[in-house]
Design a protein around this nucleic acid. Structure first.
Lengths: 149, 149
DNA sequence: TATTGTTATACTCTATAACTATA
DNA sequence: TATAGTTATAGAGTATAACAATA
């Protein structure tokens, strides 16, 4: 005797399943994408969260990246080795070091984003009408800034 | 002078950005979900890809999990420690060891899936009409089996 | 001899604890 | 004394290479 799984009736869960299935493939591509730029996934994630305009302190990065300060040191070292970021002095407090994207870092970052946000073929196969319907509905629940990281 | 990013015009890319933003939060929850079952993310991933019905050889798992055979040994050791999977002899070839989910493994696996496929609150906030529209469109491009892993 | 899986070992990434320099 | 960041060190997870058993 086999225990059958309880069927999903909740429409939100149904949509969630469909979305997860759609995204799963891309998620697995991330490490390869990072590697294609000579970075490990952690450093790539860090690169994407660095703001080209606003240098941040090491400690605030530890908060943003949800990792230990010593790991921030290590990750920023990796980015510096690739010439993608640089440590700078803080004007008011000589204990603080800020991290800023270099010109090259900003360029690579936007290249990576372009690759990440390239829609997969199956999505591209939808009609313009369907795509616009999707966008309209999704915009109701996705804050504008989160859709343009 | 700052170089402005090229605006995204392609409607498929726009939708893709929205979808990615929506899924990002959940993706970050995965390690915590794994930890709540006493597993590391790798072992959890492995558990989810083990078929309750079909035992698989170690080498085929290395292919499926995209990792080295020695790592399969390590991961299956972890699952066995928790009583979630077990090695079995292959009837025809004594070199081969197959890996099968235990009864407990199948149970935990479906619990994990239930947690993973629970829609987040913002999705739940959509109207039934919107959810049905989403499901209808997404089903055009998501193969039925991929939406029910 | 070739293949399957394990063991021995090394490397990568992350964390904790001790340390340096500023405040 | 407290805080920011680094360095020293340890641990988890993954890979490569050598090995034992079987084909």
């Amino acid at each position: 005797m086999t225990i059958e799984p309880v069927p999903v009736h909740d429409p939100a869960d149904t949509v969630w399943r469909l979305l997860t299935a759609l995204l799963m493939v891309r998620k697995e591509e991330f490490p390869a994408l990072a590697a294609s730029f000579g970075l490990n996934p952690g450093a790539m994630h860090a690169l994407l969260q660095l703001d080209p305009e606003e240098p941040q302190s090491m400690s605030s990065l530890a908060g943003a990246w949800k990792c230990d300060a010593s790991n921030v040191t290590w990750l920023v070292d990796r980015l510096e080795e690739h010439g993608l970021a640089e440590r700078r002095a803080h004007p008011g407090d000589r204990r603080i070091r800020t991290v800023a994207l270099t010109r090259k870092g900003a360029k690579i970052r936007s290249q990576v984003e372009a690759r990440m946000y390239e829609a997969p073929d199956n999505l591209r196969a939808l009609s313009l009408r369907d795509l616009e319907t999707l966008a309209k509905i999704l915009r109701k629940i996705v804050p504008e800034d989160r859709s343009r990281p």
